[in-house]
Write a protein that binds this DNA or RNA. Structure first.
Lengths: 143, 143
DNA sequence: ACAATGTTTAAAATCATTCTAAACTACTTG
DNA sequence: CAAGTAGTTTAGAATGATTTTAAACATTGT
């Protein structure tokens, strides 16, 4: 993604193209699906020789999410993840290495969902398919 | 649940029936489906006039989970939830009041799950159906 | 260039959770 | 049932992720 299109992307979403947001947008929106946490992004940025405070990473991830450039994924590990794939979709989560893989919504068919309670509507459905290594054993329930 | 059967329940799972574990087990395992966080349990116990340290609540929830008396639910809000329903099942999560409702696994049919990556096996599938109030509007993506 | 407003930052604060080490309790053995 | 030992509980400190604060700084419109 060129510097110019990054600028445009930010402006189109009413975000001033600051040095910090340019760096993060360039990194995130290269067209490939990315899954990041605030910490992992911070590390990536640091590796590129750019210094950004962690607070800015959090601010920016939230701003990008608010304008629809990112999607927040909950329920993965202990930290919050952000996904550059903003389509409705689901995830494989590899518990052996904390890796996420997108599953297009169209690849999963959910049928027979029970009716919502009165006065409630379905806001969304999240499916997480946990993966582990074929060889590894589940721990037995011992104290 | 009587004091005696609570004692037995704990012993059957190799847990000493201490005052603290008895109180928590009696509260949790009354036969109805309960969804608790460490904090919510702590508050419930406090309301009954029993004083338990939060650390003990955490310890006990983990021990109960390890022996298969509880199931940990991930991806709900910011805290970890524990469920007395230990069958494989899914959840409605009402985002307006942080309430959980069980959905039996048999009530949802998931088909066409993509194949797992090489060397990986499916460890489990979690479905969370987010609910909101019929009247409330989704926030529009503004900065 | 200047003001006005938006943005970044370091540092402190917060929140959920875990760890630590000392005090305590339940179980076993003599 | 006394004493030892192994398991438990606890307060408080530590951790880790995230948010807040308030001051310094950058961008934009005029």
């Amino acid at each position: 993604m060129t510097a110019n299109s990054t600028t445009d992307l930010l402006r189109e979403h009413n975000l001033r193209p600051t040095r910090q947001r340019m760096a993060l947008a360039a990194l995130l929106f290269d067209g490939t699906a990315r899954h990041v946490t605030a910490e992992s992004l911070h590390d990536q940025v640091k590796d590129m020789g750019i210094t950004l405070s962690l607070a800015t990473i959090y601010n920016t991830l939230h701003q990008f999410t608010n304008v629809g450039l990112l999607k927040e994924i909950k329920g993965i590990g202990d930290a919050k993840w952000f996904d550059t794939n903003i389509d409705q979709h689901h995830h494989f989560f590899d518990i052996s290495n904390d890796h996420l893989i997108d599953i297009p919504a169209s690849s999963i068919t959910i049928s027979h969902l029970p009716a919502s309670p009165d006065g409630k509507v379905i806001d969304g459905v999240d499916v997480i398919v946990r993966l582990s290594d074929k060889s590894s054993q589940k721990p037995s329930g011992k104290n």
